[in-house]
């Protein structure tokens, strides 16, 4: 559960958010949508403490985000940025780094950590490529490897910045299934997406940001009917849109 209250933030002189108030709930997959530059990624980075708000409060699981120390925060909230370097490590090592916030002084994985890593690899179907180097994998597999790292991190709140971008439709579907499973386990899952149809049909809730303010904040299924999409993007859905499911 993440609550933003009266949060203000700007890059340099220009304010982006001026008193943003919204919440991301447990057991829900929230899709954050909006035009480019509307502050979707910034909103997630503020929640993840990668940026510091100018004013206002962010609470994670009912506690002010600023009150956590670095490791405790990592155990409460996991964030996957959109762009990342491509390190020369294996999938298993990547996933095991998800346990960093749980390690003791010796920096060795304990049995509980090993179990969390195995389970994350199993859930994402990455056991078979656990020994492969990340850079030898396809974009879709890499994304699943990172999701496995996030799962191993065991946080209640998971924020993903455009996880679907560059993925083919099959990998998008697999990723969605994993996110749905996390949601069904009671996690608070938030992702930034550009695909409005995907947001409406697969998300539980939608937050439409427009010029730094929530233009729509409600059930994802009612987003298109609200007319907010037309205001924000100047487009409207054509009748008879197409979504896919597993064949």
């Amino acid at each position: 559960m993440i609550q933003l209250k009266n949060m203000s933030f700007g890059y340099g002189e220009t304010p982006l958010f001026n008193g943003l108030t919204c919440a991301f709930e447990d057991g829900k997959l929230t899709c954050v949508v909006g035009p480019n530059g509307s502050g979707k990624s910034t909103c997630l980075k503020l929640c993840a403490r990668l940026l510091r708000p100018g004013a206002g409060e962010i609470a994670v699981d009912g506690r002010p985000a600023s009150a956590y120390d670095a490791r405790a925060f990592a155990r409460a909230l996991a964030f996957l940025p959109q762009s990342r370097p491509l390190p020369a490590i294996t999938v298993r090592s990547l996933v095991s780094h998800g346990r960093f916030a749980y390690l003791g002084l010796s920096h060795r994985l304990r049995p509980a950590d090993e179990e969390a890593v195995e389970s994350a690899l199993r859930k994402t179907g990455m056991l078979d490529c656990a020994a492969r180097e990340l850079r030898t994998l396809s974009g879709g597999q890499r994304q699943k490897a990172y999701l496995a790292m996030l799962i191993a991190q065991g946080a209640q709140n998971l924020l993903l910045d455009e996880p679907m971008t560059y993925l083919d439709v099959r990998h998008q579907l697999e990723l969605l299934e994993l996110l749905h499973a996390l949601r069904d386990a009671g996690k608070c899952v938030v992702m930034v997406v550009h695909d409005l149809a995907l947001a409406c049909e697969e998300g539980d809730r939608a937050l439409l940001l427009h010029e730094g303010a929530p233009l729509y904040d409600g059930p994802a299924a009612a987003l298109l009917a609200s007319g907010c999409v037309e205001t924000a993007f100047g487009v409207r859905p054509r009748p008879g849109g197409v979504r896919f499911e597993r064949a």
Binding site: K45, A48, R49, L50, A70, R71, F73, A74, R75, L77, A78, F79, L80, P81, R84, P85, P87, A88, I89, S93, L94, H97, G98, F100, A101, M149, Q153
Partner: peptide, 14 residues
């Protein structure tokens, strides 16, 4: 190795 994952990932895993 964690620094090699990039600043944002490194920070968000603690």
């Amino acid at each position: 190795d964690i620094l090699g994952l990039g600043d944002e990932v490194a920070q968000s895993i603690g």
